[in-house]
Design a protein around this nucleic acid. Structure first.
Lengths: 187, 187
DNA sequence: ACACTATGAGACATCAATGTACCATAGCAA
DNA sequence: TTGCTATGGTACATTGATGTCTCATAGTGT
């Protein structure tokens, strides 16, 4: 089925954003709940997404694509090293809700090779930034790149966590992350 | 049923460690899989744990108790500030596998008030260490305690992640975490 | 040896979610 | 208007996991 009608697009979009909102609150939510939240019949959901897994993987792909999009301007500026990492953190923090649901559903999302491909590429790009930072003298070469990349990944997660719980806004989270990442917490 | 036989203890232990190993690989694993992995009949599993949720919450309580146990010696030494935090990171890193599964199943574990109580107490204790560190002049008072606690939580997660994937051992992870936490990644 | 208790195996009922099929209706494009 | 397409609603079959129950067997403490 093609589903290229304006109606079809509306339904599809409604389902995707319902998926994000519903799974954010309850990762074990059923497709019945998602369809209901989208204001769409359950049968229609199955017309757009063959299985539960496919819906989740579609959400993952869409969210990863949003990250790429958020990173595009800073790639265009050809920032390097520390500046690039700072810009990256600021670009990515506002996507908190968009991604938080993924953490619970990653074991499903990663069954899709396209999802893991994109994710690994993004990690590689981050590693590339770190290497540049090391060459530029911004970053301590005694720490492994693997560690730093994992660390940045986790800082982003930490930021998302606080943002989602309204403990701070995306900008504050990014600033704290930058500060801590480069200078640590020492007085 | 009391289940106080030696056999009962063996079964119980087998089930608990099977739970950790199986859920670590696949958070959606069924109780049939857990029982099979434990080399125990499915019925026996139900004799020890009424529901799936109860098993998971039991695993969570047990793991949190292990954290308490790992922290005990350093509490006894009455370490303060930076030293205390360093010791804590070293104590906690080896528990990687023990906890990694919990991240996926937290939405179930946190339905148990006892679990959240313990977890919140541990976060409070960590906040206490941070406050001490601030007073002792070890830690930058410009950063909120909330942020730092979240940050430490994430460093532990980052370490566990690498340890689980055999990218480094627990000691290296703890050392990297300490270094990064206090001094950042700056050259 | 004896009484007791936990176990394994399997049968069974239940339940919730998944996925399919059909049809009348309403939106769309020409 | 007319033919096409997506939709909602509903009924239905299927599946997989959950939890209960029973019984013969084997381990345990005395």
């Amino acid at each position: 089925m093609k589903l290229s009608d304006p109606r079809a697009n509306r339904s599809r979009q409604a389902l995707l954003s319902a998926g994000i909102e519903v799974f954010l609150v309850n990762p074990h939510a059923s497709l019945t709940e998602v369809a209901a939240f989208a204001g769409v019949g359950r049968a229609t959901l199955y017309r757009h997404f063959e299985t539960r897994e496919q819906l989740i993987q579609e959400l993952a792909r869409e969210s990863l694509a949003m990250t790429d999009k958020a990173m595009q301007p800073l790639k265009a500026q050809k920032l390097k090293g520390r500046e690039a990492i700072e810009a990256m953190l600021h670009a990515v923090m506002p996507l908190a809700n968009r991604f938080h649901f993924l953490l619970s559903l990653w074991s499903i999302a990663e069954d899709d090779p396209e999802v893991t491909d994109i994710y690994n590429r993004q990690l590689d790009e981050m590693a590339e930034l770190v290497e540049q930072g090391k060459k530029a003298g911004d970053i301590n070469t005694a720490l492994t790149t693997t560690w730093i990349v994992t660390m940045i990944d986790c800082l982003i997660y930490a930021g998302w966590y606080l943002v989602r719980d309204n403990k701070c806004d995306a900008r504050e989270a990014a600033e704290s992350a930058v500060q801590t990442l480069f200078s640590g917490i020492r007085a």
